[in-house]
C-alpha cells in the first residue's frame, strides 16, 4: 500500500495516478476509508487502549445510538460494558497486522515459489508443487492447534499459521499464469534474443501475472480476517485481552438474538475494509494495465 518509489523523481506520474483515482469516485471513497483504518490501526491502540479495556459489568450490552453518553459509546457497549467504538478502533491495529502480515508473507512466498515452479527445471517444479500439495492438504486447524499449543497465541504466531495455509493459492496461480505467458510470442522472442531468465521473469512475466495476484491478495485479505474470526469461533485463535475484529465478531455471536450490535459493528468494519480494498484493487487493475488504462484516462461514457 505504501509507495516506496521516491516521490520527487516522478511527480508527474504520481499526479497522473491521483488524477486517475479522482476519476473513479468509488475507488476514491475506498482509498479514503482505508486511510482512516490505517490511521486507527497506527494511533488507536496508543490513544484509546485504557478506554477500550475499562469494564463496567453493571452497564453491559449498552444499546447503540445513545448520544447522551461519551462518543465512545455511540455504537453501544459490549458484554463487559466496554465501549464498542473505542474497541473497534483499538482492534484495527491487531486486525490489520494479522491480515496484512499473513497476506504479504503468503503473497511473497507463494508468488516466488510459483514463478520458480513455472519457469525452471521439471525437478524443481515438481518438488515445489508437491510441497504445495502437502500444505494444501495439511489441515489448517491442526496447524493452528499445533502452533498455538507450542507458542503463545500472539499476533505474530497467528500470522505464521494463516500465511502458511494461504501459500498454495498464490503458488498455483503464479505458476499457471507463468505457464501460459511463457509460451506467448513476445516471451519466446525475448528468449531467442538472449534475455536472461531473471530479466524475462521481472520485465516480461511479473507485470502480467501481477494483476491477477493482486486481485486474489485483496480478496484474501478478507479471507484471512474471516479465517482468524473462525479460529476464534472454535476457541483456538487469538486470546483476550488481545482483540481483533474477528475475535469481537466471534465473541458477540452468542448475543446475536439479544444484543446484535456486539458482533454487527466489528463485522461491518471487516466488510467495509474488504470492500474498500476490492474497489481499490479493481481500480488498480485498470490503472496498472496498459491495455485498459484508457478507461480512466479519458472521461468515459460510463460515468
Amino acid at each position: 500500500m505504501t509507495d516506496s518509489q521516491p516521490v520527487r523523481e516522478l511527480p508527474s506520474k504520481l499526479v497522473q495516478l491521483l488524477r486517475m483515482l479522482w476519476r473513479d469516485k468509488l475507488a476514491c471513497i475506498a482509498a479514503a476509508f482505508l486511510l482512516l483504518v490505517i490511521c486507527c490501526a497506527l494511533f488507536g491502540p496508543m490513544m484509546l487502549e485504557d478506554l477500550a479495556t475499562k469494564q463496567n459489568l453493571r452497564g453491559r450490552n449498552a444499546p447503540p445510538f445513545d448520544f447522551s453518553k461519551n462518543w465512545t459509546f455511540w455504537l453501544g457497549g459490549d458484554a463487559l460494558g466496554r465501549p464498542l467504538l473505542a474497541r473497534i478502533i483499538v482492534a484495527a491495529g491487531n486486525t490489520m497486522m494479522v491480515a496484512a502480515g499473513a497476506v504479504f508473507c503468503s503473497l511473497l512466498i507463494g508468488t516466488t515459489l510459483g514463478m520458480i515452479a513455472g519457469y525452471t527445471s521439471k525437478l524443481t517444479s515438481q518438488i515445489i508443487l508437491r510441497l504445495a500439495d502437502v500444505i494444501m492438504s495439511f489441515p489448517s486447524l491442526l496447524l493452528a492447534v499445533i502452533v498455538l499449543y507450542m507458542l503463545p497465541a500472539s499476533v505474530g504466531n497467528l500470522v505464521i499459521v494463516l500465511a502458511i495455509t494461504r501459500i498454495p493459492v498464490y503458488l498455483r496461480t503464479a505458476r499457471a499464469e507463468v505457464l501460459e505467458i511463457r509460451e506467448r510470442m513476445f516471451v519466446q522472442a525475448a528468449r531467442v534474443m538472449g534475455a536472461s531468465t531473471p530479466r524475462i521473469i521481472f520485465r516480461h512475466i511479473l507485470p502480467l501475472v501481477f494483476p491477477t495476484l493482486i486481485t486474489i491478495a485483496t480478496l484474501d485479505f478478507a479471507f484471512v480476517m474471516l479465517a482468524e474470526s473462525s479460529l476464534s469461533f472454535l476457541g483456538i485463535g487469538i486470546q483476550p485481552p488481545e482483540i481483533t475484529w474477528g475475535l469481537m465478531v466471534a465473541q458477540g455471536r452468542s448475543y446475536l438474538t439479544s444484543a446484535w450490535w456486539l458482533s454487527f459493528w466489528p463485522g461491518l468494519a471487516i466488510i467495509f475494509t474488504t470492500l474498500s480494498l476490492n474497489l481499490l484493487s479493481n481500480w488498480m487493475r485498470v490503472a496498472l494495465d496498459p491495455q485498459q488504462r484508457w478507461r480512466l484516462e479519458m472521461s468515459t461514457q460510463n460515468d
Binding site: M225, S229, S230, A250, L256, I270, T274, L279, N282
Partner: peptide, 22 residues
C-alpha cells in the same frame, strides 16, 4: 454484482449461519 459478491464474501460464515437459522 461486484458489490453484492464482495459483501457476501466478507461476512463471517458462522454469523450468516446463525442469523439464517433464526
Amino acid at each position: 454484482a461486484t458489490f453484492c459478491s464482495l459483501i457476501a464474501a466478507s461476512a463471517p460464515d458462522f454469523w450468516i449461519a446463525i442469523v439464517a437459522i433464526v
